[in-house]
């Protein structure tokens, strides 16, 4: 007898291919094309636990499914939070959903940011655009356990001052005495009095111990391609750089083959990779 997913989730080990209904409890607009939704399971129990860097597959009824990184605090057991940029059919549909609407959720999937390995190191968090969203759980985790890490630097690049994601939080973090935050924009508009340029330039201005630093990098692939040599140049070796890759994740469990990047399935062997393990492939075109 076929079981509904809600009962199956309690009775059987959940089939990773079958979405579980979740309900939207809050929608917040972040930017003109970016928004955050909070989700709780439609039936009973608390949401799953996740590690910073992991993603879910979100399904909109009758439209389709997309991979979305989790952007919330891993210590928050009450809800799961996703920050989404509308860039296609499904994300457009997600944007139209209101509080109370239901989505299907699978996961969490994928490898996390290696926050255990980075303990004791200076932590460089380097984000570009909406790439700050998958990094935010790592920032929370590091700040929740601040004494385990050395210097913490966040370098963030956005298109314009109006495209700076989580601006309020960035300002709050910037006000902390135990964290260095610098933000740059490609194009200055309005009354922006901060740096203009690319995020790689911020890295050079950093002021951290490059030889005892680990870098977590997430943004457009081209940004990562330029960030890595800059990190190398100042002394951060490839085996201490972690990047989050983006490919066409469809099944999220390594069956469909769409997200292959060389020998890796980005959905289950990634999305977070230690850079030296993929460095040979990173600059191969159309791989």
């Amino acid at each position: 007898m076929p079981a509904t997913a809600a009962t199956a989730a309690t009775a059987l080990p959940a089939d990773p291919m079958v979405p579980v209904p979740y309900r939207i409890t809050r929608v917040a607009r972040e930017l003109s094309d970016t928004f955050t939704v909070d989700l709780v399971p439609a039936r009973g129990k608390a949401p799953f636990r996740f590690a910073p860097g992991q993603f879910n597959m979100l399904y909109v009824y009758g439209v389709g499914e997309v991979p979305i990184s989790i952007s919330g605090d891993p210590a928050d057991g009450a809800r799961v939070r996703h920050t989404i940029r509308a860039v296609g059919t499904v994300t457009d549909a997600l944007r139209r959903l209101k509080k109370g609407a239901m989505v299907g959720l699978r996961g969490p999937f994928g490898t996390p940011w290696p926050l255990d390995l980075t303990e004791g190191c200076d932590v460089l968090i380097i984000g570009g655009g909406v790439g700050l969203a998958p990094l935010r759980p790592a920032i929370y985790e590091v700040l929740n356990n601040r004494d385990r890490y050395g210097k913490v630097c966040l370098f963030y690049g956005a298109r314009t001052p109006d495209d700076i994601l989580f601006r309020g939080e960035l300002e709050k973090w910037r006000g902390r005495f135990d964290m260095f935050v610098d933000v740059t924009v490609d194009r200055a508009t309005g009354r922006w009095a901060g740096p203009v340029g690319v995020v790689t330039q911020l890295i050079r201005r950093g002021g951290f111990d490059a030889y005892h630093a680990c870098a977590l990098v997430c943004g457009p692939e081209v940004m990562m391609r330029f960030a890595v040599p800059t990190l190398n140049e100042i002394g951060v070796a490839n085996d201490r750089i972690f990047v989050s890759m983006e490919r066409n994740m469809k099944c999220a469990v390594g069956f469909c083959g769409h997200c292959q990047f060389g020998g890796a399935f980005v959905c289950k062997d990634g999305p977070v990779f230690r850079y030296d393990t993929i460095s040979k492939l990173f600059n191969v075109r159309e791989l």
Binding site: D33, V87, G88, G128, G129, V130, G157, A158, R159, D163, D186, R187, G197, V198, T200, Q201, G219, P220, V222, M223, F226
Partner: peptide, 21 residues
């Protein structure tokens, strides 16, 4: 060289919406 490279990256608008949008 670094300024030129940065200028090029700014030029490609890497954070912009995908080309088909």
């Amino acid at each position: 060289a670094e300024r030129l490279s940065a200028a090029r990256m700014q030029m490609i608008d890497m954070y912009g919406q995908p080309p088909d949008r």
